[in-house]
Simulated assay, not measured.
Amino acid sequence: MPAQDSFVTHAGADLCAELRGQGTRAGFDRNELLLLVDRPSDHVLLIERGFVKVQLAGNGRDLIAGLYGKGELIGEQGVMESKPRSATVVAHTACEATRIHHRDFKEFLRRHPELPLILGRIAYERLHRADQRQINLASQDVPTRVCRQLLAWGQALGERTRDGVAISGLSRKDLAQCVGAGEATVDAALKQLGDQGLLRTRRLTFVLPDPHLLRGYLRARPIT
């Protein structure tokens, strides 16, 4: 199911079906490169299945700027502005996407003058989330950022199981990249959560036994 603020949700099923008709469907393996920073913006991608991660380079380590799934449009800003790619996009899971050539996409926008406004709204929402992330990185300690990221992943990507909400396909390295911290520091925060029964981990999986308890733990933490 597409996210509430995805392109498909904003644009509607009919417009998205028409857009799909302008492109070709392609499959990508986990960790396969979809878009590369500084390369020409010659197409956009409409994610049909799976998840991709947007990566930015910073301070000697890659940062995950966001995870995007079904219904999200990727690479549209570079095409609309005729600028190189501003970030690298990698398949986080095996995924499928519809690839639309930049000329076809621009013609599609010309036929539907309401779409630039929709895309502008989506870009604003993404920028707002990025700004909030920067505020969190500057003002919150690592354990707080880890809790918030796990809760966000649980809401967006989690699957309800008998053991709790399972977040699959994400590693500790992914978590460290998302919260802008070293893996050792993140491991210490995860151990603390595990010792208190708020988290279970296994390979490429985080399990939140009760997200409400984790939210309560987060609210009770001192403001840093």
Rank of each mutant, 00 (worst) to 15 (best):
M1R: 08
S6A: 14
F7N: 04
D14G: 05
G21I: 02
T24W: 04
T24E: 06
F28R: 01
D29P: 00
D29Y: 10
R30L: 08
L35Y: 03
R39T: 15
E48A: 07
V52Q: 01
Q55L: 15
L56F: 14
D62S: 15
D62R: 15
I64K: 08
I64E: 05
G69A: 07
L73S: 14
E76N: 05
E76H: 04
K83I: 02
P84S: 15
S86L: 09
S86W: 06
A87G: 09
V90H: 09
V90Q: 14
H92N: 05
H92V: 00
T93E: 14
E96H: 03
A97Q: 02
I100P: 02
H101K: 08
F105G: 10
K106N: 04
F108D: 07
R110D: 12
H112P: 01
L115K: 03
L117A: 14
L119V: 08
R121A: 11
A123D: 02
Y124C: 01
L127R: 09
A130F: 13
Q132A: 15
R133Y: 00
Q134G: 03
L137C: 08
S139R: 14
Q140S: 15
C147N: 04
L150T: 05
G154V: 09
A156Q: 12
L157W: 01
L157K: 00
G158Y: 06
V165Q: 05
A166V: 06
S168R: 11
S168Y: 03
V179R: 03
A184P: 02
D187N: 15
A189T: 08
G194V: 03
D195L: 12
L198Y: 00
L198H: 01
L199T: 00
L199P: 00
R200T: 10
L204F: 08
L204W: 04
T205F: 02
F206K: 07
V207H: 04
L208E: 03
P211V: 12
L214T: 05
G216H: 14
Y217M: 10
A220P: 01
